[in-house]
Design a binder for these strands. Structure first.
Length: 328
DNA sequence: GTCCAGCACC
DNA sequence: GGTGCTGGAC
């Protein structure tokens, strides 16, 4: 990595000591609260994730507490946070660890990586933050910072990993990893980097280009449009919900949906109702699918369940809101 | 309204 | 290499 630009350890750690956000698991980085935070923050920004961390940690102050809880309860606390495989893996992990003797979270990155939901990034993050293991944790922030410091639009992951390994401060590996990520989260942000308040902008190559934000080049994902219908069947007892199967929103509960624009009639026949009233439209984008759903509602005399008794996704929450049934 | 970021797993 | 979900930035 001859000729590459590295962030100054002195400057970045000093900045981190001064400006890092105060987070509950940072005061005393015990393995369980740190692991919990890493699972939540895998695909969720801090402002949102912190709320989830607080209620999860309150309910599950130890890994053991989660292991003796049900997946259903974990899902209920996780609802709305997205990427529900994380919750399933977290619960599974807690059961695996508590069955061990001794029932403790391993400090060895290789051992951590064998656990469900823990990949190279999360393994390195937990090992360095909780156990001071000198290993570089490479996430999207680190990749972006590397890309900008060196003005490389398409960094390959091998180079980023090597750069992170070399730059790692082995005396404070946990703080170093967090300092890089913190910088990426609050200064070297994806859209509008705040170069003027960046502690390591002195020798940043992107800073002196027309548009620092163009590093790294973003990749687009194509998405397919899906036009369909959602059916809210409401009775005094509750809403008709069923547990979704398959990978998409699997395990969560939701209202009947068809992805066929002409499928409303079949949906009604399936559920033995007729003459639903159109109450709204929902636009909801998943990673590669753009849902446009007409929301229909019909009142029946009995059946259904209370929507606050089972975990549901944002999509279904918004469908229920559109139908005026969303006060859960 | 539209774009975009994000890590593990298949 | 494609897929999972959401909220916030624009």
């Amino acid at each position: 990595m001859e000729g590459r630009v590295y962030p100054s350890r002195l400057l970045l750690l000093d900045w981190y000591d001064h400006y890092a956000r105060e987070l509950p698991w940072r005061e005393n980085p015990e393995p369980w609260p740190v692991l919990l935070s890493e699972f939540i923050l895998q695909q969720t920004k801090m402002e949102v994730g912190l709320g989830y961390w607080k209620k999860m940690y309150k309910r599950f102050p130890t890994l053991h507490e989660m292991s003796i809880s049900t997946l259903e309860e974990v899902m209920l606390l996780w609802q709305g946070c997205g990427y529900y495989a994380r919750a399933r893996n977290l619960h599974k992990l807690s059961v695996i660890i508590s069955s061990r003797d001794p029932p403790i979270i391993p400090s060895d990155p290789k051992e951590l990586e064998k656990l469900p939901g823990i990949g190279p990034y999360t393994s390195a993050a937990i090992a360095s933050i909780s156990f001071e293991v000198p290993i570089a944790a490479v996430d999207g922030n680190v990749k972006r910072i590397f890309s900008r410091l060196n003005a490389i639009e398409h960094p390959n992951s091998t180079d980023v990993q090597e750069w992170a390994n070399i730059s790692l401060d082995e005396n404070r590996p946990g703080d170093w990893n967090q300092a890089l990520m913190e910088l990426g989260a609050i200064v070297c942000t994806p859209r509008a980097p705040k170069c003027n308040s960046c502690p390591v902008s002195e020798n940043c190559k992107a800073r002196f280009t027309d548009d620092p934000a163009k590093y790294p080049a973003s990749k687009r994902r194509s998405s397919t449009k899906v036009n369909g219908h959602a059916l809210v069947i409401s009775s005094p007892e509750g809403i008709v919900l069923s547990q979704r199967k398959g990978s998409q929103l699997g395990g969560l509960w939701g209202v009947p949906i068809t992805e066929d624009p002409n499928g409303l009639e079949a949906l009604c026949i399936d559920h033995k109702i007729h003459s639903p009233e159109k109450v709204g439209e929902i636009h909801h984008a998943f990673s590669h699918r753009d849902f446009h759903l007409q929301v229909w509602k019909v009142d029946v005399l009995k059946g259904g369940i209370r929507s606050d008794s089972v975990p549901i996704s944002r999509l279904d929450q918004r469908i229920l809101d559109a139908a005026g049934c969303g006060e859960s």
